[in-house]
Nucleic acid binder design. Sequence first.
DNA 1: GTCTATAGTGGGATAGAC
DNA 2: GTCTATCCCACTATAGAC
Lengths: 178, 178
Amino acid sequence: MSATVEELSPRAREVVAAARELLEAEGAEAFTMRHVADRLGVRAPSLYKHVPDKETLEAAIIAEGLAESAERFEAAVVADRRRPLRALAAAYRAFALEHPHLYRLMTERPLRRDLLPPDVEERAAAPLVEAAGSVDRARAVWAFAHGMTILELNGRFPPDADVERAWREGIRAFEPPR
Amino acid sequence: MSATVEELSPRAREVVAAARELLEAEGAEAFTMRHVADRLGVRAPSLYKHVPDKETLEAAIIAEGLAESAERFEAAVVADRRRPLRALAAAYRAFALEHPHLYRLMTERPLRRDLLPPDVEERAAAPLVEAAGSVDRARAVWAFAHGMTILELNGRFPPDADVERAWREGIRAFEPPR
DNA sequence: GTCTATAGTGGGATAGAC
DNA sequence: GTCTATCCCACTATAGAC
């Protein structure tokens, strides 16, 4: 019975939009069904007429995030064909820092692939796989980028750390020697 | 008023031990003051006579985790002097997979350095800084290792992903050419 | 499509008696 | 050092009327 994003009713899409705004503005702790309902001027139980449960709502938001980041990655490699890895790293970091709460939601749990449109995940990954030269290398680069990003978002680097330099060191390590 | 681990009373240390056992066995959601109390055969409010609050309890557990991982990193570089980065990566991953819930606690939030013994963090980092050749490179390698680890723990790699190969690709990228 | 009412579950923390 | 009682908070989800 699990509906994919595209199969949602118009009213359900409004629920998704409100939920995403709430998440992005106030973070995961504030992301409750009550608060989503508040944004729509409605009571929480009413949401369940449109969306089966909270997980489906989250999956719909994640699908949007994947689609949007795919677009940005595609644009990044087009804009800098000579150093695609560096361009992708910059685009990746920028997206995450612009949407920290969404980014966390997208990475902190197993993907409910059964609730996502068929190819979003692959499309988001494609530019990096291309730039890295193999899936395995792409996963290593992704791990580096995610590690940098999430450690920064988590405030885990020491206060005096030079995050930019660490990014540069990682990119240099993965880029082919020029 | 914030006490460091060493300043805890004997009874408080028992509370920390019970809390850690609980966390490691049942995960962060199960890690509540009520459940910690259950483990000790006591009511939750009694804990507050020994530990000021939950955050201090968490900091004490994190301090243990940092000290133990420091020991393992030190042993790893001694055991394989020719490829310290590979040895450290293996030790890092092993520690995280053996203590997944502890590992999450140690990385998912800003370190409360004010609640930790003075040099634990630096000691845990030292072997990698040495092996990587600079702090910035060390942070890049750490990000890669953390990214691999947490994406694996989060179940975020596709089901068919070959995690070992990705690890090898990352280590190869950061190791000096031989 | 929305409501009220409510079930059921859980959390951290404090006051004050023993 | 431990207790009971309690405060106050939060959540997801359902039943059934309108």
